[in-house]
Amino acid sequence: MKALVYAGPNKVEVRDVPEPQAREGAVKVKMLYCGLCGSDIGIYSGKHPRAKAPLILGHEFVGIVETAPGGSKFAVGDHVTAYPLISCGECYPCKNGTPHVCQTLHLLGIDTDGAMADHCWVDEDVLVKVPEGISDKLAALAEPLAVVVRTLHQANFKTLDRCVVMGAGPIGILTAILLKHSGAAQIIISDIDEGRLALCKEFGFDAVNVRDTNLIDHVNKATDNVGVDIVFECSGVESAALEVTKLTRVGGTICMTGVHKAPHAVDLMDLNFKEQTMVGSRVYTMREFADSVPLLANMAEDLEKVISQVIPLSESDKIFDMVADPSLRTVKILVDCQA
Rank of each mutant, 00 (worst) to 15 (best):
M1E: 09
M1I: 04
K2V: 01
A3S: 09
Y6T: 08
P9D: 08
N10L: 05
K11D: 11
E13Y: 00
E13F: 00
E13C: 01
V14W: 00
D16H: 02
V17Q: 03
V17E: 04
E19A: 09
P20M: 05
R23D: 08
E24A: 08
A26T: 09
K28C: 11
K28H: 08
V29R: 10
K30D: 12
M31A: 13
M31D: 13
C37Q: 11
Y44I: 06
S45E: 14
K47F: 03
R50I: 00
R50V: 03
A53G: 06
A53S: 09
L57H: 07
G58M: 06
V65G: 01
V65D: 05
V65N: 11
V65F: 10
A68L: 11
P69H: 05
P69C: 07
K73V: 02
A75F: 01
D78S: 10
V80Q: 15
A82V: 06
Y83S: 14
S87Q: 06
S87L: 01
S87F: 04
G89Q: 01
N96E: 02
L105N: 00
L107C: 14
L107W: 02
I110G: 00
G114R: 00
A115V: 05
H119W: 08
H119P: 00
C120T: 10
E124M: 03
L127H: 11
V130H: 13
V130M: 13
K137I: 06
K137D: 15
V147D: 05
R150C: 04
L152Q: 11
Q154G: 03
Q154R: 14
A155P: 01
K158H: 07
T159L: 12
T159S: 09
L160I: 01
M166I: 14
P170G: 07
I173K: 07
A176S: 14
L178N: 14
L178D: 10
L178F: 14
L179W: 13
S182H: 13
A185W: 05
A185L: 07
A185P: 04
D193I: 03
R196E: 02
L199A: 06
L199V: 08
L199Q: 10
L199H: 08
L199E: 06
K201L: 01
F203V: 07
G204A: 06
G204Q: 09
A207Q: 02
D212E: 03
I216M: 05
I216L: 10
H218N: 02
K221Y: 01
A222V: 03
A222Y: 04
C234T: 11
L247E: 08
G251V: 02
G251Y: 03
G252M: 03
M256R: 05
M256V: 09
G258W: 12
H260G: 07
K261R: 09
P263N: 09
A265I: 02
N272G: 10
Y284T: 04
Y284L: 11
T285M: 08
R287F: 10
E288S: 13
D291S: 14
L295P: 06
E301W: 00
S308G: 07
I311V: 15
L313A: 15
L313M: 15
S316A: 15
K318V: 08
K318T: 14
D321R: 03
V323T: 03
A324E: 11
D325P: 07
P326H: 05
R329C: 09
V331A: 04
V331W: 13
V335G: 05
C337L: 12
Q338P: 06
